[in-house]
Amino acid sequence: MLFEQILFFLAAAGALAGAVGVVVLRNPFFSVLALVGHLLALAVLFLLLRAEFLAAAQVVVYAGAVMVLYVFVVAYVGGIEEPLGPSAGSLRVLGPVFAAALLVEVAIATVGSGLRAVDSAGPDVTAGFGSPQAIGNLLMLRFLIAFEVASYLLLVAAVAAVVLARRRRGLEEAGGERVYQVGRRPERGPQAADPAAAGTGSPGAEPVGEREPADEAGPAEREPATAGTGASRED
């Protein structure tokens, strides 16, 4: 179908452009947005492969939840045109080597298996392929163990995130009810406002004083805390 072919090339170009943009763009905020665009283009490709459940999950989970937290963090602390440090000498050699190895690997995988399904006729699928029912049957029957293991892994990660977030807030827990004090903002100001102080290119990037000065966990680890407890301290 002509329309699907046009759509494929649009989505493929979008996915490639997004992926390149993540690496090339200097401003981390735009990098993250490029990643969002890339994920959305991938979702369209999933749709063209008749995998509508995967496409929806991709948008809900990645573009809608994970990337929101990336954007959230980057908008607060990033958005600055920071000069990257000089790349180390060994990386300069190893980087292309690994990239070439990856390319060879993907090429072998594609030529070896994937190309058989890719022709002008499109994938040959039965009715209901890629629907929630079909995915559910696969997960619950054929891949049950892998599915359960993955869910335990996620559970462990969630508990770990809660533990990490609680430890940083230990003093407050002991102190009982937390009362917001207007006058406390200047105290935390210097540490909290530091990343934003240099931010000429970032519109309105002043943190609102609810960031923890000691940022032990990286942005990725503090995701649940940011959305839940951390952000609740804004006002």
């Binding site: 329309f3 699907e4 759509l7 749709l47 063209l48 008749r50 509508e52």
Partner: peptide, 8 residues
């Protein structure tokens, strides 16, 4: 995506 959903 909408159009693709409708056809798929």
């Amino acid at each position: 995506p909408l159009a693709a959903v409708s056809s798929a």
